[in-house]
Write a protein that binds this DNA or RNA. Structure first.
Lengths: 123, 123
DNA sequence: ACAATATATGCGTGAAAACGAATATGTGTA
DNA sequence: TACACATATTCGTTTTCACGCATATATTGT
């Protein structure tokens, strides 16, 4: 049942913050490191977990791996992503993550613009 | 963060079925046993897990323990309960659980009617 | 007080998860 | 080719979870 896998992905704080950031557009591993301030290993491990359950997709762009939400998310995933965004509106942790987003993205604006076109619209 | 605890509660199939059934009104342990067809111990253990995280409430009614969703659920919980109900609309497992609900309830209509007034409205 | 019923709790085990540390892989560049 | 950077994978350890089994507790009826 994919719904269970969605909740499994959502039930860890680091993963939930990653997923939430991805609802705003694609990001690469170093962005998560900067924004979440957790070690690279930890980020990669959680991304592997999400990949295995098909909650995120990734593609290589030079040395970077660009992660995004599925281009064609299931109805369940889409519904839950919207729900998540409702729920975290006023949460300081998630708000703070979003505030760090523009700065983190600025430097790689080039590939991000291109990658963004491949993302699902969950915002 | 309560949101994490919500997803922790949602990420096991048995618990998710319990929670889903509770969105239709209060139930006691034996109902879950009948509907889910899992051993009493397993039901009670999952209910303890949910109680600990304040996703369900319970009160004694004679020999029965009546479980229900919180009378005053948090915004996050309420949002996620609605989301859950959207997601499982067409899912055979959850639909089948609902179909067994009226029969399971019939015999204890008396205390259920009374208990129902204490439940939050998530339907 | 006793038996029957409903439910909860404690224990042991195996599996999964979380995480840091070390290491491996892939890519761009000198 | 060699080196630096970005990312992934493996390993060992600790914690949490899921579950069956046995047992304890609470309530009702006799």
């Amino acid at each position: 049942m994919q719904l269970i896998q969605i909740y499994q992905c959502f039930c860890d704080e680091t993963r939930l913050r990653i997923i939430h950031l991805l609802t705003k557009g694609p990001l690469c591993v170093c962005h998560f490191q900067d924004i979440l301030e957790v070690p690279q290993t930890k980020v990669s491990q959680h991304l592997a977990y999400l990949r295995k359950r098909e909650i995120v997709e990734c593609k290589r762009r030079g040395a970077w791996m660009i992660y995004s939400l599925p281009a064609q998310p299931s109805a369940e995933l889409e519904t839950n992503l919207k729900c998540l965004q409702d729920c975290v509106q006023t949460n300081p942790v998630f708000r703070s993550d979003l505030e760090k987003l523009p700065a983190a993205r600025e430097n790689e604006a080039a590939w991000l613009d291109e990658a963004a076109s491949k993302t699902c619209d969950c915002s």
